[in-house]
Amino acid sequence: MFKSGLADEVRALPGGENLEMCYSCGTCTSKCMIQQKLEPEYNPRRLLRMVMMEMREESFSNPTTWLCSSCDLCYPACPQQIHISGVITAVKKIAVQNGQKTPLHTAVVDQQTCVACGLCAEVCPYEAITIETRKLPYRGSIPVAVVDPGLCMACGMCGAACRSNSISIPADYSDENVVESIWKWLNPEGAL
């Protein structure tokens, strides 16, 4: 009936072991705030079901795969003790291996100003930043911070930690936008 594949692949990855224990109670979905705050289609329960039912393409394109930030609020609440974020991370890993791209606006490093101090790599909760040697115009072969978009969740901690202002989060939460919103309020005439 089903093509063997996705569920087995997920089970084989660390975190995905107890996948089939899910009895669809919905605790994870309601404990998580992503559905009510960000994305109405977000639903870990349904993603687990999709994986079990071998719905490969659907689970890769599902927002749940990309938006789960592994906060693990659901894990201690799960009556079946399924490490849900582990399952989702496993799905995401397989999706990335299959060439899928995250819809998030992930962190961007300005490699011309990066001094490779490693502070961003230190604070990143997802270990998405590594210090690697890159050949750059004007700077030669030099170590700089590199962001893996497959792991980055766009929380912005690296941006707050960076001392040389070389790492930024595009779109809504960029340094410029936040500072601008503060100044627009305090100084409506616009000294900016």
């Binding site: 604070v123 766009a154 929380c155 912005g156 901690m157 941006g159 707050a160 989060i169 939460y173 340094d175 936040v178 500072v179 919103s181 503060i182 100044w183 309020w185 305090l186 100084n187």
Partner: peptide, 25 residues
């Protein structure tokens, strides 16, 4: 009261706070 939303408190660069304070918050 002015709401400034950030994805996470970890996103708050101390400079954001300094900016607010300098502007007169």
């Amino acid at each position: 009261i002015r709401l400034i939303k950030v994805p996470c408190t970890g996103r708050i660069d101390p400079l954001f706070v300094l900016n607010a304070v300098q502007g007169g918050a």
